[in-house]
Design a binder for these strands. Structure first.
Lengths: 215, 215
DNA sequence: CACTATCTGTTGACTAAGCGACAAATGTCG
DNA sequence: CGACATTTGTCGCTTAGTCAACAGATAGTG
């Protein structure tokens, strides 16, 4: 086991997200989708009252009524589960708001930024009794997961419509995703901040040059 | 197939409830409990907007994300599923109210009567837009299921503490369960009726002589 | 009447989930 | 430090769930 290294290796670096086998290709088997849904739901419920760090795979699977071996058949570790859970809720949030990914990159970017802002506020509301929610709105692994999801979505978009610059898609996606999250986090911690709809364009204008270097 | 006959055969008659294989012995396998829970939950949700009669097994399993063949591995037909669902919710209601089955028959009877009254009002609240809820509070198969559950509980109690009379336990249980349901139904349809707590003792006093013929 | 369509139970082959046990890593406390 | 407990991945075997296909039943339609 190498807890922090697994993250620092796979995460901020340009390497692919560390979600080895699972969730690739939206499995058709109802048993698979059911198991993953149950695990993700259970983790979300547990996170209302517990720190992610203090949870063991044992506890998660016990609460879910799923065998521990089954867990490892779907996720390499609990961090991967967290990432997939965040991804699922993020996509659901976007879909609930009618954000569609047509050809327009700027619309997609705006949707993602808005999604991050709303996801943050929503996660903050239902978070556990944090002693200092202003200073650290979300636990670190949660933040990593959100950024990974945003990075993945940006990467997909970049590969469809490659920009002109010399930088690798991975570098662009990582830089932009961290920028978006950092901006949204700053916004969230600002007292009496604007609404997400009013604020999102600011981040969008800041980040757009990263993705469109020619501008 | 014999839709109505299967009911009229197995239900009001003293024969055992028609729940062939399933739910006998509270299966330990997590997969089994999960499947049954999902099917029962799904049926409850469907019943909020649909008539039980109009539902096919196909529809139920589709909505539940469970294979149709799996359904038949647990329940002989949709009526058995309904009965098991009602039984589960009824037991949950009793347990939620702290009704405990100690040695006292009168306490148990009171708990059951109260449970039926509350179950009826609760089922009525969440029922579909019935054109005439006063005349017919619940669809017929729902009524059958509730009575079957009550009958089963009474039968269990009677077998533990057999009364003195010459009647079979089945006859006593059937008569009493129908009496309880009929009384509760009448109470529910009475305008400005008493609370269930105030009313339950009345049924209890009417029914007790059936179960204790010596009194 | 035949034609079409849907629902009902049931079967057998295949696949995922459950279970117990294992070695190895990681804490934790005296 | 050593003894102990817990967690982590992993593996083979068993069991439950999925799937496609089947024949029979029921009902609606031209």
């Amino acid at each position: 086991m190498a807890l922090p290294s697994a993250i620092s290796e796979a995460f901020p670096s340009p390497s692919e997200p560390r979600v080895a086998s699972p969730e690739g290709g939206e499995s058709q088997d109802p048993r698979v989708r059911r198991t993953r849904r149950i695990l993700q739901q259970t983790l979300a419920e547990l996170l209302r009252t517990r720190e992610f760090e203090t949870l063991s795979v044992q506890e998660i699977t016990d609460a879910a009524g799923v065998n521990r071996a089954t867990f490892y058949a779907h996720y390499p570790d609990k961090f991967a589960l967290l990432e997939c859970m965040v991804a699922g809720r993020f996509h659901a949030l976007l879909q609930g708001r009618g954000v569609v990914f047509d050809g327009s990159c700027s619309m997609a970017l705006q949707g993602i930024v808005l999604g991050v802002c709303d996801f943050l506020t929503q996660s903050l509301r239902q978070g556990a009794g944090d002693p200092c929610p202003e200073a650290n709105p979300l636990p670190p692994h949660m933040e990593s997961a959100i950024i990974a999801v945003v990075r993945g979505m940006l990467l997909e978009g970049i590969r469809k419509h490659p920009p002109e610059g010399a930088h690798s898609p991975e570098l662009l996606a990582s830089t932009a995703s961290w920028a978006i999250y950092g901006g949204a986090r700053e916004w969230l911690q600002t007292p009496n901040h604007l609404s997400s709809e009013e604020f999102a364009p600011a981040i969008q204008r800041l980040v757009a040059p990263i993705l469109h270097p020619e501008g």
